[in-house]
Amino acid sequence: MDRELRREAVVFSRYLVRAAPSEALIERYCAANRELFAHEAPSAADAAVLAFARDHAWAVAPLDAGHALLGPASLLRKKLLVMTAILETTPEYAARTEPRAVALPMLGLRLAAAGVAMAAGAAAGLALTLALRHGK
């Protein structure tokens, strides 16, 4: 169990901030999972998605995008939210979530780029999510 959680912590952190988490953050992620999710077994669909994400780190981004639309309350999204919260409340990552000034044209460009990336991720994610759901 802990091995799976530790693997999730690493995969999710790399996805969210492109960096491997420290041992303390991995421990914190495991503790949060024990506190928040240990009381009920995951559904078969949730378990399949998480297992796939653990084994295929590249798939986390499209799966997140797919589940943001198809399964916002899925276990994957909840676990990603937990890792996001843990990273946001860690000094070494705080600066990455602080707002900063940006010129309006640059803001427009960045939002547009994010929109394109999200649309592409969602397209791939929807297909992957549906495939995993039906193939479980």
């Binding site: 996805y15 969210l16 981004a61 997140d64 995008a65 943001a68 639309l69 916002p72 999204r77 990603l80 939210l81 996001t84 990455r96 979530t97 994010a114 990336a117 999200m118 991720g121 969602a122 994610g125």
Partner: peptide, 8 residues
């Protein structure tokens, strides 16, 4: 409805 990384 945003993916976490891009949402952040």
């Amino acid at each position: 409805p945003l993916p976490m990384r891009h949402g952040l």
